[in-house]
C-alpha cells in the first residue's frame, strides 16, 4: 500500500481519465393484457372490431381498456363495430424512427369507426400522402384470414372506401 496523500494526477497510468460508465440494464417481465384488451384482441383474431359500451354514459370505446375513463366504471357490454370509419384528423409521417416498418412518407390518421365514440390511430394506404383529407371515409384492409392473430397487425391498414367525405359537423366533437 502506498502512503495516503493528496492525489494530484488523475491518470497516473498515462491513459485518459475515465469519464463514462456503461451500465447495461435488462429487465424481464411477464405482461398481462387484462380482460378487456384480451377480449378485443380475440375479436381481432376473428376479423372483428369489438368495442365496449360504458353502462353509465353509453359511449363505445375501442380498443377498450377496461374502464370508462370519465365514469371510472367497467365497460363490460361488447359492441361489434363496422369495418369502416371516418378520418377525423391525421398527419403525414416523413421522419424515420426506431421500430418503423413503413416507407416514408405515409399517413397516420385518427380513425373513428362507425358505431364508436373514440378514434384510434391507424395507417392509411392506397392513396398518395397528399390526397388524405379530414372527413375521408376509410375501411380496414385485413391480412388473409389464415394470418389473423391476437394482434392489431392483423389489420394491414385502412384505405379509402369510396364513400363521399363525412361532413365536418358529424365528427368535429371527436377532434
Amino acid at each position: 500500500m502506498s502512503d495516503p496523500g493528496t492525489i494530484t494526477d488523475s491518470g497516473s497510468s498515462g491513459e485518459a481519465p475515465v469519464t463514462m460508465l456503461a451500465t447495461p440494464i435488462r429487465l424481464d417481465y411477464q405482461y398481462t393484457a387484462g380482460l378487456s384488451q384480451s377480449r378485443f384482441l380475440q375479436g381481432i383474431a376473428q376479423g372483428k372490431f369489438i368495442g365496449q359500451r360504458c353502462p353509465a354514459c353509453h359511449k363505445v370505446y375501442v380498443p377498450p381498456r377496461g374502464s370508462c375513463p370519465t365514469d371510472g366504471v367497467a365497460t363490460t357490454d361488447p359492441v361489434e363495430l363496422s369495418n369502416s370509419g371516418t378520418v377525423t384528423t391525421y398527419c403525414v409521417v416523413n421522419v424515420p424512427f426506431q421500430g418503423q416498418s413503413i416507407e416514408i412518407p405515409y399517413i397516420c390518421a385518427q380513425i373513428l369507426l362507425d358505431g364508436a365514440n373514440i378514434a384510434f390511430m391507424g395507417l392509411i394506404q392506397e392513396l398518395p400522402a397528399t390526397d388524405v383529407r379530414m372527413g375521408m371515409r376509410v375501411e380496414a384492409v385485413w391480412l388473409p384470414k389464415d394470418q389473423w392473430g391476437l394482434t392489431m397487425a392483423s389489420v394491414k391498414y385502412f384505405r379509402p372506401n369510396g364513400e363521399p367525405d363525412a361532413d365536418y359537423e358529424t365528427f368535429k366533437e371527436y377532434l
Binding site: T32, A33, G34, S36, S67, G72, V73
Partner: peptide, 15 residues
Amino acid sequence: EDHRNEVEMLMPVVT
C-alpha cells in the same frame, strides 16, 4: 394477479 391489469384491479377498490 394475472387476469386483470392495473386499472381493472383498481376500479373495484375505488368503487
